[in-house]
Design a protein around this nucleic acid. Structure first.
Lengths: 99, 99
DNA sequence: TGTATATCTGAGCATCTGTTCAGATATGCA
DNA sequence: TGCATATCTGAACAGATGCTCAGATATACA
């Protein structure tokens, strides 16, 4: 146990972290990446939104260092780059599914 | 391990859950409640926003059953009502503070 | 009863957010 | 080189979100 009133800055960082998982499209993107690497077009098709929308979302996740790009020819493959985010995602999913 | 592409509905629920922790004021409210029960006015003073703003936020958290109210006279004391949310919050905070 | 205090509520607002659209950039291949 | 494909980017727009404000409700107490 710890915590106490968080200062504005720390609270903002925590909020930003959870914000990464607070959108349906991003959650679906992350759920796919949890299985393994995927390129942008493949993500768009899986999630059912445009490649542009996926690209915009990936930029945000990239800037937070939650995903990492790997360029191969014309394609860019993304994978999850943060164990903790996977853990948070999994726990959130468990919470929704059971209990 | 598990996960795979989440369906729209499940992903929306996961997003909603994390959304509860995606705002600076709510994170600060939860950080205070993690220490124990507090009434609305006390929360407002601690977090530094109006009582009305706190009340609005608490309504959302209440509807998600993340906090629980206890009425005592004119005051309403709130406490966290979901172990998992405390766990998620704590893990998010750890992630921000170290690593 | 009447007044003060604690909380809640809905409307209005400014801001943030996610998407689309058009077009730029970069790579592969004929 | 030229063209097709994959991804990225910025502007614009619609919808969501968090706050304020005014006022409603509920309880305590003189």
């Amino acid at each position: 146990m710890s915590a106490q009133l968080l200062d504005e800055g720390t609270a903002a960082l925590v909020a930003e972290l959870f914000g990464a998982l607070s959108d349906t499209s991003r959650v679906r993107i992350i759920s796919v990446l949890a299985e393994g690497e995927r390129n942008v077009g493949s993500l768009a098709e899986a999630v059912g939104i445009s490649e542009s929308a996926v690209s915009h979302q990936l930029r945000g996740l990239r800037q937070m260092r939650l995903v990492r790009p790997r360029k191969q020819g014309r394609q860019v493959y993304y994978c999850l780059d943060d164990e903790h985010i996977v853990d948070l995602f999994q726990r959130g999913l468990d919470h929704v599914l059971h209990g």
